[in-house]
């Protein structure tokens, strides 16, 4: 197992993270935006596991479990709000659902 270099793992995490950022920039639908937030959090968790493997410590995996808990809490509230948004605005488009203006 020693043959996987750390930086390849981190690069994979960075690519997935960047794809998540791109997804959020590209999509205007709240459903997809929430999905890409999950992709980004997952990429951060992957980076922790890779870093933990580099040092041979369990800490990276423990942090991954905490990230998992966070992702679950975020998605529970996020999808709850999404259902409310759909109920109120009849759309999931972030640009259309915009009452707050200065």
């Amino acid at each position: 197992m020693a043959e996987v270099p750390t930086q390849y793992g981190i690069i994979l995490a960075a690519i997935l993270f960047s794809l998540g950022v791109a997804g959020i920039l590209l999509r205007r639908n709240i459903f997809f935006v929430l999905l890409f937030v999950e992709v980004m959090l997952n990429a951060a968790g992957l980076a922790f596991v890779v870093a933990g493997a580099r040092w041979g410590q369990a800490d990276g995996q423990v942090m991954f479990i905490f990230v998992l808990a966070t992702a679950a809490a975020e998605v529970a509230i996020g999808l709850g709000l999404l259902l409310r948004l759909h109920h109120q605005f009849k759309t999931l488009n972030v640009d259309e659902a915009s009452d707050l203006r200065g």
Partner: peptide, 29 residues
């Protein structure tokens, strides 16, 4: 956005490849 992302990925890959190689040590946790 795609071009921006490609640049971002390119930068990140460059950053991590520029470092001296470090193998993942130790057995499975």
């Amino acid at each position: 956005p795609v071009i921006l992302t490609l640049v971002l990925i390119g930068e990140l890959i460059y950053i991590f490849l520029a470092r001296p190689g470090l193998a993942l040590g130790g057995p499975a946790i």
